[in-house]
Simulated assay, not measured.
Amino acid sequence: MVTTVRDYALFLKAVAAAEGYSAAMAADRDRVQTDKGDQAIVDCASPSATACPDHQGYGLGFNVLRFGDATVLEHGGADWSEVSLAYIGTPSQDGIIIFLNAPNARALAAMPELIAQIDPGSPFLGEYQRWLSNARQP
Rank of each mutant, 00 (worst) to 15 (best):
G121D: 08
T71L: 00
Y21A: 13
Y128H: 15
D30W: 12
E19C: 01
G89Y: 03
V5T: 04
P120T: 05
P91L: 02
A14L: 01
E113V: 07
T3R: 01
D30L: 14
A27S: 11
D94Y: 04
V5Y: 04
V83C: 08
D54N: 08
R6T: 11
S81D: 15
I115G: 04
F62C: 09
F124H: 13
E74I: 05
P123M: 06
I41C: 01
T71G: 06
H55F: 10
V83L: 06
E113Q: 09
G20C: 12
L10T: 15
D38R: 15
M111I: 04
E19F: 02
G61S: 13
L10Y: 09
Q93Y: 11
F99V: 10
A40K: 14
K36W: 10
I96C: 03
A14F: 00
A51R: 15
I98E: 10
Y87G: 09
C44L: 01
L108M: 01
G37K: 05
Q56V: 04
Q33A: 13
P47W: 00
W131S: 10
A14G: 12
A17I: 02
P112F: 04
R66L: 13
R136M: 09
R136E: 15
A23C: 04
L114F: 06
Q56D: 07
R6I: 05
G126E: 00
G95Q: 03
T3I: 02
P120H: 10
A17W: 03
R66Y: 14
Q117M: 06
L12Q: 12
V5E: 06
A109V: 01
